[in-house]
């Protein structure tokens, strides 16, 4: 499929098949999602909306969602969404990459982590922006309050994915969008793919926002640990200050995401209650898998 994208859509078959291999499927889906973001150099832009690519994307997303739901433990539902969502975060006792970087990681391990994280951080906040036009006034205005901050409050130099780009470039890495996709572990690809799927599918808007609340709610403290670890390893200030920014920003965002977005969303659309919890759980699950994969790679689990 990836080779086929280098020619014009008119010259290609009308369907593509999934490979069935987990790593290949994850890379294929990541590639298909990128057609909806900034595209891929050398790929005809018409591929974004061809029946063949949409068909394969649908098939791969269905498999990803089925796996996710099969792994999910039964949710505790009290009727108070904020309580139930915070319980998911409190119950998460998975190993922490941030703590490893803070205390023990080598410089090489930390560079590897930054390369893996670059897949998301170079389009930070973008997957959630797909959700905006699908919301009613309350959660929409609150989501925009977060997104505007993510996008630098009008200053491109303060835009979070630009801060990350500046940080990794100062650290001697390639800040180009998608530069490190070839070395991404499958758990990182799947983490990105689920986030894009939540954003792109209107049906999963509740999960997208539950994911946002969990992501922001587990960011301030780990960001502080990452900033400390980067300074311990003498990384440039541009890199450490990217995480400083997230300590402060995400302490705000987590409050807005939980109450002004998720609680308001479920008040407007009560049927989305379980999807919000699904998204929050998925955030913790995908991060646990990514952390487990990288820590075992480093023999640090």
């Amino acid at each position: 499929m990836i080779a086929a994208l280098l020619s014009a859509p008119d010259d290609q078959p009308r369907s593509f098949a999934a490979s069935g291999g987990r790593a290949d499927d994850a890379l294929t889906l990541w590639t298909l999602h990128e057609l909806h973001y900034r595209g891929i150099a050398g790929v005809d832009e018409r591929w974004e909306w061809q029946a063949s690519t949409i068909g394969l994307r649908t098939e791969l997303e269905r498999a990803l969602e089925t796996d996710l739901r099969a792994r999910r433990p039964e949710a505790v539902v009290t009727g108070d969404l904020a309580v139930d969502l915070l319980r998911i975060l409190a119950d998460d006792d998975s190993p922490s990459l941030a703590r490893h970087v803070q205390r023990r990681a080598t410089r090489e391990q930390t560079l590897q982590l930054l390369r893996q994280r670059s897949l998301y951080h170079l389009k930070e906040a973008d997957p959630t922006s797909w959700v905006i036009p699908r919301l009613t006034a309350g959660p929409k205005a609150a989501l925009l309050e977060i997104q505007f901050d993510e996008y630098g409050n009008g200053d491109p130099g303060r835009l979070h994915h630009r801060l990350f780009e500046a940080g990794i470039a100062a650290s001697g890495l390639d800040g180009d969008y998608g530069a490190y996709v070839d070395e991404a572990v499958v758990e990182i690809l799947e983490q990105n793919n689920v986030l894009s799927m939540f954003g792109l599918q209107r049906r999963l808007r509740g999960a997208a926002l539950g994911h946002l609340a969990a992501f922001e709610g587990t960011s301030s403290l780990p960001s502080r640990q990452l900033a400390q670890g980067l300074r311990r390893l003498d990384f440039p200030e541009e890199m450490a200050s990217y995480y400083d920014e997230h300590v402060e920003a995400d302490a705000v965002h987590e409050q807005l995401a939980l109450r002004d977005i998720c609680v308001a969303l479920v008040a407007a659309e009560p049927d989305l209650y379980d999807d919000v919890l699904l998204g929050a759980w998925a955030c913790t699950d995908l991060e646990a898998r990514a952390a487990g994969a990288l820590l075992s790679l480093w023999d640090a689990a």
């Binding site: 309050e145 901050d149 409050n153 301030s220 402060e248 705000v252 409050q255």
Partner: peptide
């Protein structure tokens, strides 16, 4: 410096007067 700011209320933030999430610990 941002449109919405979180001001520390627990007294334990490392970046006072702003919140850094320490209250959760």
């Amino acid at each position: 410096t941002r449109p919405v700011t979180a001001v520390c209320r627990c007294g334990h933030s490392a970046i006072k007067p702003w919140c850094d999430g320490t209250h959760k610990l």
